[in-house]
């Protein structure tokens, strides 16, 4: 579904991503792991259209989408939940959700989808008319995911969804992601919480210093191996 080839992202003279290639197949959950500063967020942002890559190509469903803006990517079916949730605090939960559906052509189905998300995340129903800034961190994360899902994405990009959340909520988040796979949504997931990500994902890539240093299916990334990769070992790919 998604193919990234030789992606490079530069911030001025800093090369955050250097020649990254990866792919995500239909219905998979793919994890993007790595230490801080490895280039995971930049890679995701480039796919989502929030950044323009300096080099490389991004192909989605056979169409080349390199450098397409975020607005366009949403309409292609790629939605991102960025790091830190970034819900609109001064807008109500209802308005936040409706914004997720901005790009939808089938307006009639939207309210049904809103209902589905409220079923999935009951706390949102309770605060439906309140300003989103009133929600706790975990609740905001649920709102952010619900908002992204309202765009009916084919590919969902998640940047550190469990960051800063209490363990119980981390469970909720990962359960939700697993259920998304069951519903047929493909997920590309950036995570610091490597152990949970490794359990959940079908495949994982490990980034370090802007490049991919390992790729492995589920069950083959043990904690020691992961630790070594984070800290400096290089694997022959």
């Amino acid at each position: 579904m998604l193919t990234v080839a030789d992606l490079s992202v530069h911030y001025g003279r800093i090369r955050a991503v250097r020649g990254v290639s990866l792919r995500v197949d239909d219905g998979e959950i793919v994890g993007l792991l790595g230490p801080n500063g490895a280039g995971k967020t930049s890679t995701l942002a480039a796919v989502a259209g929030a950044l323009r890559p300096a080099e490389g190509t991004v192909t989605f469903d056979g169409t080349e989408v390199t450098g397409h803006s975020a607005e366009r990517m949403v309409r292609h079916g790629v939605t991102m939940v960025p790091e830190g949730r970034r819900i609109f605090a001064t807008l109500t939960v209802a308005e936040n959700l409706s914004l997720g559906a901005t790009a939808r052509r089938d307006r009639a189905a939207v309210s049904g989808d809103v209902e589905d998300q409220l079923e999935r995340f009951p706390v949102l129903r309770r605060y439906y008319r309140s300003p989103a800034g009133r929600l706790s961190g975990g609740e905001q994360q649920q709102l952010a995911i619900a908002r992204a899902l309202l765009a009916r994405p084919r590919l969902l990009l998640l940047d550190e969804p469990s960051l800063g959340l209490a363990p119980l909520l981390v469970d909720l988040v990962f359960d939700t992601i697993a259920r998304l796979r069951a519903e047929g949504i493909t997920v590309l997931l950036v995570e610091q919480n490597a152990s949970r990500a490794v359990e959940l994902a079908d495949r994982c890539y490990v980034l370090r210093g802007g490049g991919i240093v390992a790729e492995a299916p589920r069950g083959q990334l043990h904690p020691d191996r992961l630790g070594a990769l984070y800290l400096g070992d290089r694997e022959v790919l």
């Binding site: 992202v9 530069h10 800093i14 955050a16 801080n36 490895a38 280039g39 950044l51 803006s69 370090r208």
Partner: peptide, 15 residues
Amino acid sequence: TPAPEEEHGHPARTA
């Protein structure tokens, strides 16, 4: 040198 993840940089933005 390996590149640090830059959070406050200014990459080219898509329009």
